[in-house]
Simulated assay, not measured.
Amino acid sequence: MGHADRRRTGRPPTAAALKKLVLRLAKENPRRCRRRIQGEPAGLGHPIAPSTVWEILHAAGIGPAPRRTGPSRREFLTTQAERIIAADFFHVHTITGRRLHAPAFLEHGILRLHITGITAHPTAQWATQQARNPTADLGARVASLRFVLRDRDSKYTDSFDAVFEAEDMDVLLSAPQAPHRNAHRERVIGTIRREVPGHLLSVNQARVPQVLTEHREHYTTHRPHRSRGQRPPEAQAQPAVLHDRVPRRLLCTRVLGGVINEYR
């Protein structure tokens, strides 16, 4: 209730109305102390004592501001999605049973996927080189990224982190044995495991990069994503809706030998 509302009604707000306002301010502004919360009603023409604000918050079980500062991890990842790139390593097997390792970097904001290399013997030096590859691929977009989200795998060393820190990014570590803390990364790796090695065994190491590149192209240029309104990462907007009734031919493109189909 502002000045205009008070002049119109001719009555000050009730205690219940002020209590409701204080609780709303505390909920919508969790980093504000009670002094700042007190200032909002005062600015609306309804001064309230700091002790009254404290009593209202205390009765509602809302602690002092230091206990309420900072967003939760989920809130942080949501609000900072456009500025986060997540890193992880996954593995695939050849038909001979050889285990190959590949790094995956996922831009949270638009879900653009980068798969930068593959090896049977991942070392710390190799991992550091893989960190350099996406920063080169990102080009000017690297300036818009602020955080690198990774787990505590031993392949991540100070040299790996230094590649991103040189681009003014902060490295965020997920908790041990907590894959849900990097859920976007886990989801894309799960997609790769289901759609690539689960249906297509590669004969040798030379074939695996071709398979992963083809899948990455599908993932970034055609695959619809619910979080992006059923748009692929590379799409700026949905195609125009066709309102006419002109019959059109549906074209199907087989990806990875028919493991995945694309329609146009």
Rank of each mutant, 00 (worst) to 15 (best):
H114E: 04
R264V: 04
P209E: 09
I95S: 09
S174T: 15
A49P: 03
G70L: 10
A131N: 03
S159L: 04
W126Q: 12
Q38V: 04
D158I: 06
F76N: 00
L111K: 11
L77Q: 11
E165M: 06
A240I: 08
T213K: 14
I85Y: 03
M169A: 06
T191A: 13
L100V: 01
A102S: 15
Q210Y: 12
A49E: 14
P247T: 08
L173C: 02
G39I: 02
A127L: 06
Q230T: 04
L138N: 01
G139I: 01
L172N: 02
P176K: 07
L113R: 12
H58I: 00
Q38M: 14
R35Q: 12
G97Y: 00
P179I: 03
L21D: 04
R98D: 01
S51Y: 06
H101A: 07
H243D: 13
Q125T: 13
R248I: 09
T9E: 10
T191N: 15
L242C: 11
V22W: 01
F89L: 15
H46I: 06
H91G: 02
G70H: 12
G43H: 11
S159K: 07
R226F: 02
A104Y: 01
H121F: 10
Y219A: 11
V241L: 14
S174C: 15
T220I: 05
R223A: 07
I110D: 14
G39W: 09
A124I: 08
